[in-house]
């Protein structure tokens, strides 16, 4: 499938989620490593992805990137600027980059992300990379979408306490201490190691990088690949994918229910739910996949 077709399908998945089933049904099931990058605004997620792409490309792998930025809560419009940092790869046929607005989704991604990732896996990319919004709050959705989650930190940046509180620290498989070319990096690194030790987590997966000069990138990519291979060889990947399926199903259920809820008009909340569920069951039975 060429980039144009893929791009059009993503638009469809985003705008008309009800048609996702029909679209994805026609494609072969296929999986590839899906890697998530999360962390506070400005820590260097996009720049890091740019470097990771370069590294994967030099190993001959094709890469798809989905970069999510927040939608304005007022206008629902969005300014999507992550792509700027990936300029080098614009003309590379082996790289596909798509910017996406969060469109009100809470977990730091966009509701269609499950469908979009499934599409990108199906059409044959070797790697799918995801960048989350980067507001530093409760961005845990990426945990369910990606197989390997990298949490990007950088010195004096973002509020580490905030991340701790929001539970983002817990969801990461790899901790990237970026901007290692700047001062203050060592202290952040030490604190992180300390934290992980007492949290009983694997302090091995801390990598220092500089997305600016490329140091540490090779190591980061190696770690990511090794982790994924480990997951694939053990039961872990199956488990992860099961989780993903469950969350995908949940998202779908929520969206579907919401749709029917908004169509019922009842004074009594209990009755409202009953009515909505009733409509839903009828429609789903006849409507094959709920397409409207």
């Amino acid at each position: 499938m060429d980039h144009k077709e893929i791009a059009k399908l993503i638009t469809l998945l985003e705008n008309e989620p009800d048609r996702a089933r029909d679209i994805l049904k026609k494609l072969p099931k296929r999986i590839c490593p899906v890697i998530g990058f999360t962390g506070s605004p400005g820590v260097g997620k996009s720049t890091l992805i740019d470097q990771v792409i370069a590294r994967l490309r030099s190993a001959g792998k094709t890469v798809a990137v989905v970069a999510v930025d927040p939608s304005s809560p007022f206008s629902q419009g969005a300014f999507l600027g992550d792509r700027v940092r990936m300029k080098k790869h614009f003309l590379d046929e082996g790289v596909f980059i798509r910017s996406m607005a969060s469109r009100g989704a809470l977990g730091g991604l966009n509701e269609s992300i499950y469908d979009v990732v499934e599409l990108l896996e199906a059409v044959g990319f070797d790697y799918v990379l995801i960048e989350t919004v980067g507001v530093g709050q409760a961005e845990v959705e990426v945990r369910y979408v990606a197989d390997v989650v990298a949490l990007v930190l950088s010195p004096g940046f973002g509020d580490e306490m905030q991340l701790l509180k929001a539970g983002v620290m817990e969801i990461a498989d790899i901790y990237v201490v970026n901007k290692s070319d700047l001062e203050g990096n060592d202290s952040l690194y030490d604190q992180l190691i300390g934290f992980l030790t007492f949290a009983g987590r694997d302090a091995l997966n801390v990598v220092k990088t500089s997305a600016l000069n490329g140091s540490g990138i090779e190591e980061l990519v190696d770690r990511i690949i090794t982790l994924w291979k480990n997951f694939a060889e053990t039961e872990k990947l199956k488990q992860l994918r099961k989780e993903r399926l469950r969350h995908h199903t949940e998202t779908l259920a929520r969206r579907t229910l919401q749709k029917y809820l908004s169509a019922v008009d009842s004074e009594d909340p209990y009755e409202g739910v009953e009515l909505a569920l009733k409509f839903m069951c009828e429609r789903l039975k006849y409507g094959q996949g709920g397409g409207t």
Partner: peptide, 22 residues
Amino acid sequence: EVIYTGLRQTPEQIVKTAIQED
């Protein structure tokens, strides 16, 4: 939803971006 690609884009880059971003 506005996609901004920054300075110094070649026509080739602009067209590729337009395609991928649909």
